[in-house]
Each structure stands twice: as C-alpha cells, then as structure tokens.
C-alpha cells in the first residue's frame, strides 16, 4: 500500500524538471522518462508535452488529470507506441517501447470511431482475441464475460452504430477487458455515459483491475472520478505540459460509491486536486518548470 517512501516528497530536491514519482530500476511496469512531444504542423511546431517523468508499479491504478489540451491524449499515444516521442522514452517492463506492445490495450477518447462499423458488437470484442489465436471456446468465454461485465450481453448481434454513444463506449471497454492486457490505458472512457452507468463502470474498472492485476492509467476530466478510482492522481499543468503534482490517494482499498465519496478525506483530496487544476488552468507552474 501507499507508504511514505512513495510520496512525492522523496523527489530529489532541485531536480531539473518537476517529476512524478519514480521507482528504482527494475521495479516499474511502466516508465516515462523526460518525455517531450512536439508536433510538426504546417502552421509551425506545437509543443504538446514538454517534460514528463513518472513510473507506474505493476498492478497500480493511476489517474491522469489535466486541463483540456494539456497533452493527455498525446501522452497515451506515446506510451502505447503509436507515436514516437520527440525526446525521452517510454519503457514497458524495462524495454523501450517503439511500437504497440503486445500486452497493452487502449480505450480511445473517440469511442465511436474506434469500433469496426462492419462488425457486430460480439465480433468487435472477439477480433483481437481471434487475431491472437485464442481457441474458440476460451474466446467465447472471455467475450461473454466482458459483455456481461459492461452490461451489454443483450446486444451481441447489433452493429455499433445501432447503439447509443454510451453503449458504444462500453463495447470498447469490453473489448479491452476481454483482451486481458497487462497494461490498460483509458482516455476519458466515460465521457459519454450517464451518471448511473458511469458509477457502475467505475466500479467495474476497479473490479477488473483487482481481478486481473492489470496496471491502469486512466485519463479523466472528472476530479471526483480521479480521486474515487485511483491509488494515485497525476495532475498535469497546462501546455507546455509538465507534471503539476503527483498525489497519493490514501483512501481505503475497498471503495464504495456512497461511503467512500462521503469520507472527509475524499473531500479533502478532491479539494486539493481541484485547486491544483485551477492553478494549472491559470498558468501557474510548479517551481522547477519555469
């Protein structure tokens, strides 16, 4: 569990750039090191991410929050090997990521465009497994479980475009869950679902996370959600992006939509995150980033 040694106060004083929590070599599942991304566009270069450094322990659940345009999606694309960073590197289990790693699943922000419109719901969830050569019987079991878990076992034969936005997003989540990844990246996955479904899906993510022991990096706009879900919240500054704060969420392991959210500590943490994001929006930057 969260011990004092993993708190950000252990960060070396006067480090060249503000950094998130790092672990000794060999202990991190996912390492982001001095990551910088500059897009080269016709209108000139755009610096989406200036300098990010942090580690995720195997089996950790971390949330990433930050103002719109702060480069959250950019970061996820670099981590998932879809895009090469301009500087710095991403390591998965000690190996440098240079292309999409096998045991990583990504749920994209644009859920509607991430499903195959020519395949039915079931086929969409099944395809990655089929492509990996998972035997039919096991595949069926995983797909059924995943659809059941997101509450979509009643529409396996529909096409994605016949479903509502929230349902489409749940198909994308089911696909990621059925894939049984070691690392799961999610980019604002609940943006399109209603409050009740959202609460259910939050609990689903925590259940799946505990069951599979998967390492999760969860991007969200929602401060309450980040505090409720994570063991840790990484707050990004506004662009050019650095880490504003890497906060340990010291809430009890067992979380519950009603009771956890009613804890005084929950309120404190959410206040803290809220303040930091307000500061980030106003352009306040952590001392070392100037």
């Amino acid at each position: 569990m969260q011990s004092e040694t993993t708190d950000k106060t252990t960060m070396p004083a006067g480090s060249p750039a503000p950094a998130g929590r790092t672990l000794p070599e060999g202990q991190a599942m996912l390492s982001v090191r001095n990551l910088k991304k500059v897009y080269q566009t016709d209108g000139g270069p755009i610096e989406a991410v200036r300098n990010l450094t942090f580690d995720l322990r195997a089996g950790e659940l971390a949330c990433l929050v930050g103002p719109s345009g702060s480069g959250k999606t950019t970061l996820l694309k670099c981590i998932s090997g879809l895009m090469a960073p301009t500087e710095g590197q991403v390591l998965l289990d000690g190996a440098v990521v240079s292309g999409p790693p096998k045991k990583m699943a990504v749920v994209f922000q644009e859920y509607g465009r991430s499903l195959f419109p020519w395949m039915r719901v079931r086929e969409n969830v099944e395809l990655p497994l089929k492509n990996q050569g998972v035997p039919k019987a096991e595949r069926d079991k995983l797909v059924d479980e995943a659809l059941e878990a997101v509450g979509l076992s009643h529409v396996p034969m529909s096409y994605p475009w016949q479903l509502s936005g929230g349902m489409q997003q749940r198909v994308a989540i089911a696909r990621a869950v059925a894939y049984q990844p070691e690392v799961l990246l999610m980019d604002e996955p609940f943006a399109a679902v209603d409050a009740q479904t959202r609460a259910d899906l939050e609990d689903l993510i925590r259940t799946v996370w505990k069951k599979l022991g998967v390492t999760v990096l969860f991007v969200t706009h929602d401060i309450d959600e980040s505090v409720y879900l994570g063991q840790r919240v990484i707050i990004l500054s506004s662009s050019p992006t650095v880490i504003q704060e890497d906060l340990v969420i010291d809430l009890p392991e067992e979380r519950d939509q009603l009771n956890t959210r009613a804890l005084p500590r929950f309120t404190e943490l959410r206040h803290h995150v809220y303040e930091q994001i307000q500061l980030a929006k106003q352009g306040h930057r952590p001392a070392a980033a100037h």
């Binding site: 998932s80 699943a105 991430s114 195959f116 020519w118 395809l127 990655p128």
Partner: peptide
Amino acid sequence: VLSDSSHTYGITGAARVRYLVLPS
C-alpha cells in the same frame, strides 16, 4: 482512430487488410 485501435490490438499485416483496410 480505427487504424490506431487495430494497431494497438496487434491487428497488422494480412489481418489488417482483411479486417480493416478492405471493409473500410
């Protein structure tokens, strides 16, 4: 986005042509 999705799930080469490129 669809192309990225396929890519992250390891759908490349012939499978990519069959499941993504041709239908799309």
